[in-house]
């Protein structure tokens, strides 16, 4: 019986208003976990507040984008020999109470997604976006052969072999979504979901807001999924040397 080393990865860009609270809650619930904040070139006090809350903070010199920041966290976890990565947002949408549910499910799955739609939880969202999310979830479910309801959720728990694969290989830069789940699944990993309640964000704004980025999302996602299907999976599962 060996204790698993768990790293909580929190990508944050201008989340000074909420990041401290998120870290404190995680620390209260899981004192044994290490917390890593990837400060993605924030203009506010995100890094300072996160450091004061006790997290280790790595600051990006340029804007890496959400995916770039997350992948940096995976690289850190890979290099420091962690067994599990808990990925969550800094804006307070993801309730640390559910971390234990996700970790529990990680005994069965290689990648666990915290879904706000599984179990019919209510989450206020624009109908157009909801339609898009449903559509891409349906596509991802069809391709992976697993029931996925919330592919855009950034509340995930990843086992070592999965985050190693994503750390060393390619990872979508702007919004990892259904395409990433399909990619992971194509490598033979088990992807599963756990129902979580997501709060409305405490502060800041969504990555996908406004008509322009919604349209970009609607155009990019099918293309990203198509490319993921066509791409040749890495020869080795995770743990390859580079």
């Amino acid at each position: 019986m060996t204790e698993r080393r768990v790293l909580v990865v929190i990508p944050a860009r201008n989340e000074a208003a909420s990041v401290g609270q998120v870290i404190s809650r995680v620390a209260a619930l899981h004192p044994g976990f290490d917390v890593l904040v990837i400060d993605d070139d924030s203009l506010d006090e995100t890094a300072e507040i996160a450091r004061r809350a006790g997290a280790r903070v790595l600051s990006a010199p340029v804007n890496l984008g959400y995916g770039g920041a997350v992948q940096t966290g995976f690289k850190y976890a890979y290099g420091h020999g962690y067994d599990l990565v808990v990925l969550m947002d800094a804006d307070g949408q993801h309730d640390p109470d559910f971390i234990k549910d996700l970790i529990e499910a990680s005994a069965e799955y290689d990648l666990v997604v915290g879904s706000r739609f599984k179990g019919g939880t209510s989450y206020r969202i624009s109908p157009i976006r909801l339609m898009g999310m449903r559509l891409f979830s349906a596509i991802a479910s069809a391709i992976t052969g697993r029931s996925l309801t919330d592919t855009s959720s950034g509340f995930q728990v990843l086992g070592r072999r999965v985050f190693s694969l994503l750390a060393l290989g390619s990872y979508p830069v702007d919004f990892p979504d259904a395409d990433n789940l399909i990619w992971v699944s194509r490598h033979g990993f088990k992807v599963g979901e756990v129902a979580v309640v997501m709060h409305q964000r405490v502060a800041g704004k969504s990555m996908i807001s406004g008509l322009g980025s919604s349209a970009r999302y609607a155009l990019k996602m099918p293309l990203a999924i198509l490319v993921t299907i066509l791409r040749i999976p890495s020869a080795e599962k995770g743990e390859d040397s580079r």
């Binding site: 204790e3 004192p31 997290a55 790595l58």
Partner: peptide
């Protein structure tokens, strides 16, 4: 940029201080 980010702090992994009460749970896998 990611490598620079990874080098941006030379310390040990951060382990947040427990500010409010919370029961530590053991994470062990059989």
């Amino acid at each position: 940029a990611q490598r620079v980010t990874l080098l941006s702090d030379g310390g040990t992994p951060g382990r947040p201080r427990v500010t409010s009460g919370g029961d530590p749970e053991s994470l062990s896998k059989e």
